[in-house]
Design a protein around this nucleic acid. Structure first.
Lengths: 360, 360
DNA sequence: CGGCAGACTGTGCACGTGCACAAAAGTAGT
DNA sequence: ACTACTTTTGTGCACGTGCACAGTCTGCCG
């Protein structure tokens, strides 16, 4: 095993001092062309990898990261992302990282606008964005671009902006896979129903539209497009669903599979429980606490998980690596879609403890 | 954000020098009871977390890890574990870690015995064991216990030994989940076949037996135990399967689902391709290259992945944390079982790039 | 030629920990 | 009280990097 190459070694090989190598390395200027060439020639030949642990210590300044994500209640989707962010900040605490959260109401455009407006004043070194409203996010991205502040998306990506990177599942694949699953676990040529969550004050999110497109594409490719019914349901007022959903199942006894493309499949599961609807398979998205409970109780058959906690963790990590070591990251990281069912559910929840703890 | 507590601070608070605190911290002895009490009293009160990056640098000695795992061909299961180990060693290279591999033939008991016999002579500080043969592993474990050398299992766990920790999927759950899947994607009360890989020179591995038990338990609980047929097949000589498997399907046209509990489901997939057997669902285990190919081609419907690469990575990480920072780890870490199908396969393979790269 | 600004370069400290070594304190025997 | 020895305690260096600061060199102007 060859000895690790240090800045001092590079300096010796190039016939300059460590300070000059450092200046070349960090583009700090004030380096003569000759010295620069000499140093760069050495870099060509040797495989120098800075010891990231050490560069962290020597660092003088503190970096400030702002995470702008929707607010959440306990057990909801965004709590996982938040937890992942928090974990990363803990792990990297020995480097000089501060993290500050800015929450907004994902169902209130004005709340988002106001929250996003506050960010610049915090003069962050980097921003983690959990986007909901397209225009507001585009505006924020433009401002950050102008200020030269890097930003990273979690959960979903907003086109037409230039983030450092993003960590999100592919919504089209998500919908497509949902189609495959519900098709696989129901009899051939079964009928399906897509329950669409409706909410006051918010048009369907882009993610949901793309998921639906993925679902439709699967069904179309398998000649099942006409087997799909669409029924809206209310998240805020579950009691209103009784009439909405109630007679649907009465009129459509051939429906053997139900799909929910938002994270609220537990609402449908609760309905099925209450009204003793049996023989209908249910596939949902996201491992929220409510969904997990319904999986355990057997009312939800499969759920697609998109590793929100890991998204948050990796977003912070990518940001830190960019800020501290100048790493560029690939434009978009597509998260795996975990197929979760009663038998492997616990494995996922228990395991998340282990996976991230880089430091004690 | 409060200031980070350093050894020097503890020393000041306890009225001793940093050296004494260090001695208490690392149980190096030569500390008077009074001083020890004073230091420990301070530890009670403050939340001291050593900066692991720094302890890494200051460390004088090199640690030597030996990984004893089965040899493999390209694209096979153990290659992933090996890759994960390699990755971890890269990431932690700035700490002083050497890793050395000892390979053995997983179908040759004597090869294993010989390889395991060589380990002690390498005087490792820690050993990663990928076990196959029970008695040989028990023997190795006993020798390591005697020498006070910690060891970690990957892939599976050998009872009656005391490893530092282990990273493995639960084989019973694996079989159980396989049952759930094949049951879910076939018509009610379908018949199934379990293809059992037979190999010269090796009794069925313990893992396979436990998986089979899990499968049987699922079927029994769902009143399907009598719907299962068992057929052996040859991995080494696929051409012999023509007769073995051939007339089975002729005689059992009601069989709609096939299960393989080893990683060799691609052999069955290839057979189905060759003989144009259709309408039979196939569920397998492990994301080997061959299995991935057959998933893409549509001959395998679902595969359970147990994250071998992550197992290797985490095993090394746990060992390093134990050696360097004295962390104890929980006895056994149960890996998630990823349900992989054509639509989410690529997501898993692409993502593994991202997840581990702690350092550039 | 002297002075001076500006560009470039080298030096040295700090970061927090592990560990070697020196120093001090304690103990026991003569 | 002195020596010899053990136990306990304190001190200081090394690790590799970032960065401040001081020092050197060059060219230009008066």
């Amino acid at each position: 095993m060859e000895q690790k190459i240090r800045i001092k070694d590079i300096a010796r090989l190039a016939g300059v001092s460590a300070g000059t190598v450092d200046r070349v390395l960090h583009n700090r200027g004030n380096v003569s062309p000759a010295a620069r060439r000499a140093v760069e020639a050495v870099f060509e030949q040797v495989d120098y990898r800075p010891n990231i642990h050490l560069s962290g210590i020597s660092l003088r300044r503190r970096y400030k990261i702002v995470a702008a994500i929707p607010e959440f209640s306990q057990g909801e989707y965004w709590e996982c992302i938040r937890r992942g962010i928090g974990r990363a900040v803990e792990v990297y605490e020995s480097l000089r990282i501060d993290c500050r959260f800015v929450f907004y109401d994902q169902f209130d455009l004005y709340s988002c606008r106001e929250a996003f407006g506050r960010i610049a004043a915090l003069s962050p070194d980097g921003v983690i964005i959990g986007p909901t409203f397209r225009d507001e996010t585009v505006g924020l991205a433009a401002r950050l671009d102008e200020l030269g502040i890097p930003y990273v998306y979690v959960d979903s990506v907003i086109d037409g902006t230039s983030p450092l990177t993003a960590f999100a599942a592919d919504p089209h694949t998500c919908g497509y896979l949902t189609g495959k699953l519900i098709d696989s676990i129901t009899p051939p040529d079964a009928e399906f129903v897509l329950f669409q969550a409706v909410r006051v004050g918010r048009a369907s999110a882009n993610t949901t539209i793309l998921r639906k497109q993925g679902l439709m594409d699967y069904l179309t490719e398998h000649g099942l497009a006409n087997n799909l019914h669409r029924v809206p349901f209310s998240v805020m007022h579950p009691e209103r669903n009784d009439e909405l959903i109630g007679d649907f199942f009465e009129r459509h006894p051939c429906v053997k599979g139900a799909v929910v493309l938002s994270s609220r499949s537990s609402v449908i599961a609760a309905y099925m429980d209450k009204h003793r609807i049996e023989g209908v398979k249910l596939v949902g998205v996201d491992l929220t606490e409510n969904n997990c409970r319904e999986i355990r109780r057997g009312y939800i058959d499969f759920v697609l998980g998109q590793r929100p906690e890991q998204q948050g963790y990796l977003a912070v990590k990518a940001m830190i690596h960019h800020l501290l070591y100048g790493d560029s990251a690939k434009a978009c990281n597509v998260m795996p879609l975990d197929i979760v069912t009663r038998e492997n559910l616990d494995l996922y929840s228990e395991f998340s403890e282990v996976a991230y703890s880089d430091a004690k």
